[in-house]
Design a protein around this nucleic acid. Sequence first.
DNA 1: AAAATAGTGTCTGTGAGACACTATATT
DNA 2: AATATAGTGTCTCACAGACACTATTTT
Lengths: 212, 212
Amino acid sequence: MFSIKNNVLHLLLIRRAAPPFDGCWSLPGGFIDIEQDSSVEAAAMRKLQQKTGLQPGYLEQLEVFSGKGRDPRGYSVSLAFFALVPYSAVSSNIATVSQASWWPVQDIASLQLAFDHQEIIQRAHHRLKQKALYSMLPVYCLPPAFTVGQLKAVIEAIIGKEIQRKSLMRRIEASNMFHLTEQKVSSGGRQAQLYQLKPGVDITHFNRNLGD
Amino acid sequence: MFSIKNNVLHLLLIRRAAPPFDGCWSLPGGFIDIEQDSSVEAAAMRKLQQKTGLQPGYLEQLEVFSGKGRDPRGYSVSLAFFALVPYSAVSSNIATVSQASWWPVQDIASLQLAFDHQEIIQRAHHRLKQKALYSMLPVYCLPPAFTVGQLKAVIEAIIGKEIQRKSLMRRIEASNMFHLTEQKVSSGGRQAQLYQLKPGVDITHFNRNLGD
DNA sequence: AAAATAGTGTCTGTGAGACACTATATT
DNA sequence: AATATAGTGTCTCACAGACACTATTTT
């Protein structure tokens, strides 16, 4: 589960409370319960709710990781997901769940994580980067109403590179995904227009990438 | 498993020989055997070899399909793959496997397929189309040495739209993935230059799509 | 010679990057 | 007034589309 905190891309890790890898940081996860999970997505949502106390606005299958080398207990098959959530939705909920915390994605590489979670995170980050280049997916890291400046900051945090405000405005216009609200918001200078997602729209995919 | 036959995109289906869906056409598949499959990819390759007699040059995880509605026997979790293979590699092998045959992708929608394979195929086709727009992936549908005309035909078959030969030549040049062979080949007009993949190169991804 | 396919030259169109410029807020 | 952030105008650049043109082969 990714989010943006202080204009830095963060990932939610939880500390394991049982062997194997007791005490290590790891991705939130668990097993499918065929009684209550109507699909693997439902299982992922249930586990996230249970382990982190929150439901992401976006959830997508990443990839299956499998084999006998990844869990000391033996052969395993795990389906990894990646999720996006606005950090504003987080603050209260997360406090109630002990041993869960947000880490800057850049700092994770030097941690000792459980299983092959280091590799899973790399893959997830890579996919998120790609999608940020050609789609509006990063809006799911923002609250329902947001400014162009916020969206720009989120995209830059994800792709690790500056983009032109102008390019982003062109895309916002062309995508037709958003409408202006009457509100404006202050941030130390001229007030910024608040946008929000039109209800029921799909995430636009562009046919060129940003940041060539 | 996709391939190109007579400049038309085809998919390999096999006829089921046991319930459920006895006699229906279906995707080749099977169960993981943790004794012999070191990973889910290995399992996919083994099942393809066993059910169709051939090994694709490209194999990629598509998506997990899950739930209790998709198999009358109860809850199931299936990982679908998509694969590309040159049709030239096929002709001999496939004859040895009864009840496997290539279908034009366009004709499949009207068939009665087993399980949710109709939906899986739609998703696979969609992903293949997208990748054909921004990458050189379609080369895996061609033999080791091929002409620009052949590659153009493959891409057009996949995306269902004509592209400019000029655009493709620009990409071939820019990708630096191929080298010319000394051979040329006849096809009813001026002889065409044969290209082949440089050994060990990665599939280039472009930052614009074809067919805007 | 005619037809077919291969390949090039070059113009247009689209949208990203760059960046100066205007607009409006806070201090 | 100075500064900070929001937003626009407009030029350049890269690359896809279009399409006429040349090149080389078969019939």
